[in-house]
Write a protein that binds this DNA or RNA. Sequence first.
DNA 1: TATTGTTATACTCTATAACTATA
DNA 2: TATAGTTATAGAGTATAACAATA
Lengths: 158, 158
Amino acid sequence: MATTEQRPEDPLLQFPGYLLRRASLASTARLSEQLGELSLKLVEFSLLQVIGTNPGIKQSEACQVLDVQRANMAPLIAGLEKRGLVSRTPIDGRSQGISLTRSGRALAAKSFGVVTRFEEELLASIPEASRKHVGPILTAMWESCAGVKFTASMARAS
Amino acid sequence: MATTEQRPEDPLLQFPGYLLRRASLASTARLSEQLGELSLKLVEFSLLQVIGTNPGIKQSEACQVLDVQRANMAPLIAGLEKRGLVSRTPIDGRSQGISLTRSGRALAAKSFGVVTRFEEELLASIPEASRKHVGPILTAMWESCAGVKFTASMARAS
DNA sequence: TATTGTTATACTCTATAACTATA
DNA sequence: TATAGTTATAGAGTATAACAATA
């Protein structure tokens, strides 16, 4: 028989956005641990994948894809270059194409395996009947919240 | 007719955990803006709600509910107390019960309205057929990732 | 003039360690 | 000996401003 002692209630559990944040923080912490064993931060992993899929991509383009400030991208790329994971090829006088080196491709592939396994477990933890809704739900939440930014910058661009 | 110019691809869009993180970051940024108009940070809003639902809650209990370190909770509570939003009542020599003041209740109610509206819009952006899966999916993802922590600390406690 | 990359810097958030007082 | 609260501090992560070089 359980005691009647009251545990504090969390009144925020009813909010999708709260669940979203708590789940994201927990997931990020867990995956970061695993990537740490490859001496990779989450953003470094993401960057390797984006560069691998888009060889010769410009720094500024990678910034747009990953929503990272130019000022923060510079030391990130520099760090990967210093480790021999990426290389730069001049496009014109002010921009360079970034590509994976051989060892960059190796680490990208290895870390992709780690993340894929993690993501498979994550998906497996979700009730089977709900799984096909994961993509639509998260994409909708993302787009509806990112929408403000997008419209602001796109209004300027159009 | 669209140009054939290639935009960089994001190879991470296939990963639920990536979508989770991007959606969470976007949602957090957007809601934080709105709460900023009430001079509330997201964690302060959450804390007000937890205290309001659990009058007399101890600081350490609020830490567990919101997953905030004791060391970071202290200045948070102090800040709310300084603004006259919460009050402390001694429980024993070392712990105090935290409750909302009158104006704390007012701000908690007002901000709850703001967040509720936000969350309703968030939910409305999701395809109707998927909506009932939001809770189960996010809860499952949260629990499956928080699980590690829980088992570690619970093993110690048992 | 706008874009690309860079540097410096500040601000927020979070994590750790050490301390006091009390159970 | 463990718990509650506090303080100080360090480390990420992120944001802004300014600059040089180039389109």
